[in-house]
Design a protein around this nucleic acid. Structure first.
Length: 556
RNA sequence: UGCCCGAUAGUAUAAUGGCAGUACAACUGAUUUUGGUUCAGUUUGUCGAGGUUCGAAUCCUCGUCGGGCAACCA
C-alpha cells in the first residue's frame, strides 16, 4: 500500500506530463511509442535510457511500443545488428508490439515523394554534393536557390522515376524538398529526401537504388504506424519543423516529436563511432567486452536488467545536458546483487595458514545470503591447512588495521577464531605461512562463539579448494570525459582496466556455478561466470567491487 | 556572429507563484561472524543584474555560460 502511494507521489518527468495532458484532453485513446534503432551497431546504456523511456511510458499509460529499425542506409546496416538489438531489448525485459522496418515503407515513401513532386514541393537536383553544400549557406548567411529548383512537375516526375530505375550513377542526382533556402533553420534549406545508392540492402536486396534520408523516413514511418509520441534525443530538435512540415504537406497522421537529453556517463565513451573504433582497433575484445558500455558488455560483466532499469529510473528524463556519475550505475547493480547474490569464499592472493592445534577435518555451515530471511546454507570443508588473503595479514599493522597480525585474533567466517602465533618466512624474508592456533568452541553455536574479535576474514581449505581465473575490471578511461580531452580519446584509455588473476582459490561449492547465477565473493565483490569458461577452466568476471571503506582509510 | 535548446548542492533530479526536497557521492557515529548490508546524522545549492508581485527557483527583460544546427549519416 505504501509502495503504491510512493509511486503516486513520485513526480512526473516532462514527457509523462505531456502524455497525461494528451490523455486528459482526449487527444488519444491510447498512446503508441516506438524505439527506432539503426541496425548499424550494438545497443549501449544510452539506448537503454531511451528503451526504458519509450517502453516504460507505454507500460505506464496502457499503450504499446513498436520496435522499428531505421534501415534507410544500406551501406552501414546489417542483420547481425538487428539480431543483437532484439536480444538486448528482450534481455532488458521489454516486449514490442510489432517488429517493423523503415524499409517496409519504401514503396509508400516513394509514393509520398511523388505526391510532393506533384504538389510542387520537391524537385530533382543535378548539383554535386559540394555544390549543394555551398548553396546551403552557413548558419549566419542564407543559402541560394539551386539552378534546378524551378524544374517543372512533369520533368521532376520523369527524372525521379529515372532515378529509381537506375539510370543515374550514385551522387548524380538527388530529390530535394522545396522548403526555404533562406530559413534561419539549416534543416529547412531544401533538405535532401532521396539519394542514389547502388548498394545491397540487408532486407530489400537490390530492389531499390534510391534510398530515403532520415528526415524523409522517420516522421513518415511514425505517421504510418500512428505513433502518438515520437521521442528522440536533443540533436533532433532542429529537425522538428521539418518533421512537422512533411506530415503537414502529406496530410498524414500527426505524430508529434519530443526530445530529451541523451545519457552521458563519466569515464565512458558512448558514441557508436568511438565504440566501433575500440572494437576494430582491438583495444577491447569485442562489442561484448565486459568493459564496454554496450548492453552485451554489461550483461557479460554481470549487470542485471533490473539494475539497468533502476538506473534509468534514477537518472530521470530532462532536456539539459548531463554527465552521470558511474557510481550511480554501480550503486544500482550493488543494490540488486546484494539481495540476490549467493555468498562464496574465494582467496585471490593466498597466504598459507597452518592451524597447529587442529587435526582432522570437518564441515562448517554457512548461509548463502544473510539478506534473505529464508536463506539456504551450504557446508564448507575445514581443515588444518588453509589459505587466507595475503592482504588480511600484516606483520607490523598500522593503527586502524583490524585483521591478522602476530599475536592477534580474527574470526574465520563461519568457522573458528584463530590467533597468529608465528610468522614463517623464506630466505628473502617473504612471509610464506602463518602458524596459528584456533580457539576451541569458538564456532557458531559453541561456548566461545561470542568472543569479540575485530575482524572476520574469508578463507578456503587448501586440500579442498578449486581454482578459477578471475577477471577484474576497472574503468576503461582515465579521463572523466574522454572525448573532451585534447587529442585522441584513445590516449585516455586506462592501461589497468583489466587485471587477470590466473588461479584464485575458491571453495568447492563454486564448481557447480551456472551462467545465470550471481555471486558475492565475500569481501571482494560481485562475480559471475564468463562465457570463456571451459571444461578445465572456470572464468569469473567481477561485475563490481563491494564498497570498500578500508581502501579509503588506507589512502588517507 | 544567425536560429534553436538549456542552466537548482560534487553529480543527477523534484518543488507547476507560497517551508528549496530526494537520490548518488562525501563525511561522522551505531549495528554487524563481510571494513559489505542496515540505521541515525552532517556538509554542500536556485548562473548574474534588473523588473512584476504581499510573496519568485518558478513570470518578464537584459546579460553570462553550456549545448545543438552548415553529412547524398541517423
Amino acid at each position: 500500500m505504501t509502495e503504491i502511494k510512493k509511486e503516486e507521489e513520485k513526480s512526473l518527468n516532462f514527457i509523462e506530463e505531456i502524455v497525461e495532458e494528451d490523455l486528459r484532453a482526449g487527444r488519444y485513446k491510447n498512446i503508441l511509442t516506438r524505439f527506432p534503432p539503426e541496425p548499424n551497431g550494438y545497443l549501449h546504456i544510452g539506448h537503454a535510457k531511451s528503451i526504458c523511456l519509450n517502453f516504460g511510458l507505454a507500460l505506464k499509460y496502457g499503450g504499446k511500443t513498436n520496435l522499428r529499425f531505421d534501415d534507410t542506409n544500406p551501406v552501414t546496416e546489417d542483420t547481425e545488428y538487428v539480431e543483437s538489438i532484439k536480444e538486448d531489448i528482450r534481455w532488458l525485459g521489454f516486449e514490442w508490439a510489432q517488429e517493423l522496418y523503415a524499409s517496409d515503407y519504401f514503396d509508400k515513401l516513394y509514393q509520398f515523394a511523388v505526391a510532393l513532386i506533384k504538389k510542387g514541393l520537391a524537385y530533382v537536383d543535378d548539383s554535386s554534393s559540394e555544390e549543394i553544400a555551398a548553396g546551403k549557406g552557413t548558419p549566419t548567411e542564407p543559402g541560394r536557390d539551386s539552378p534546378y529548383r524551378s524544374r517543372s512537375v512533369d520533368e521532376n516526375l520523369e527524372l525521379f522515376e529515372a532515378m529509381r530505375a537506375g539510370k543515374y550513377k550514385d551522387g548524380e542526382k538527388v530529390l530535394r524538398a522545396k522548403v526555404d533556402m533562406a530559413s534561419p533553420n539549416m534543416q529547412l534549406r531544401d533538405p535532401i529526401m532521396y539519394r542514389i545508392k547502388k548498394a545491397h540492402h540487408h532486407r530489400t536486396g537490390d530492389a531499390w537504388c534510391i534510398y530515403p534520408m532520415y528526415d524523409f523516413a522517420h516522421g513518415q514511418s511514425d505517421s504510418i504506424e500512428n505513433i502518438t509520441h515520437s521521442i528522440c534525443t536533443l540533436e533532433f530538435v532542429s529537425h522538428r519543423p521539418l518533421y512537422d512540415w512533411f506530415i503537414e504537406k502529406l496530410e498524414l497522421f500527426p505524430s508529434r516529436q519530443y526530445e530529451f537529453a541523451r545519457l552521458n556517463l563519466n569515464y565512458t565513451v558512448m558514441s557508436k563511432r568511438k565504440l566501433l573504433q575500440l572494437v576494430n582497433e582491438k583495444l577491447v575484445t569485442g562489442w561484448d567486452d565486459p568493459r564496454m558500455p554496450t548492453l552485451s558488455g554489461l550483461r557479460r560483466r554481470g549487470y542485471t536488467p533490473e539494475s539497468i532499469r533502476l538506473f534509468a529510473d534514477k537518472i530521470g528524463v530532462q532536456k539539459r545536458d548531463n554527465m552521470i556519475d558511474v557510481s550511480l550505475l554501480e550503486y544500482c547493480i550493488r543494490e540488486h546483487l546484494n539481495r540476490i547474490a549467493a555468498r562464496r569464499m574465494v582467496v585471490f592472493d593466498p597466504l598459507k595458514v597452518i592451524i597447529t592445534n587442529y587435526t582432522g577435518e570437518e564441515r562448517v555451515k554457512s548461509e548463502d545470503n544473510p539478506e534473505d530471511p529464508g536463506t539456504t546454507h551450504r557446508e564448507l570443508p575445514f581443515s588444518p591447512e588453509l589459505y587466507i588473503e595475503r592482504e588480511d595479514f600484516m606483520e607490523i599493522p598500522p593503527k586502524k588495521f583490524f585483521r591478522l597480525s602476530p599475536g592477534k585474533m580474527v574470526r574465520l567466517k563461519s568457522a573458528y577464531i584463530i590467533q597468529c602465533d608465528e610468522v614463517v618466512k623464506d630466505a628473502d624474508g617473504r612471509v610464506t605461512a602463518l602458524k596459528c592456533s584456533y580457539i576451541p568452541g569458538s564456532k557458531t553455536g559453541g561456548e566461545n562463539a561470542n568472543m569479540k574479535v575485530q575482524a572476520t576474514i574469508h578463507w578456503v581449505s587448501i586440500a579442498h579448494a578449486i581454482t578459477a581465473e578471475l577477471r577484474l575490471y576497472d574503468r576503461l578511461f582515465k579521463a572523466e570525459d574522454p572525448s573532451r580531452e585534447e587529442g585522441d580519446f584513445k590516449d585516455n584509455i586506462n592501461p589497468d582496466s583489466l587485471q587477470v588473476i590466473g588461479a584464485a582459490y575458491a571453495e568447492p561449492s563454486l564448481k557447480k556455478a551456472t551462467f545465470n547465477e550471481r555471486f558475492q565473493f565475500m569481501r571482494k565483490g560481485y562475480f559471475c561466470l564468463d562465457k570463456d569458461t571451459s571444461e578445465d577452466k572456470m572464468v569469473f568476471n567481477r561485475t563490481v567491487t563491494l564498497k570498500d571503506t578500508w581502501a579509503k582509510v588506507q589512502k588517507a
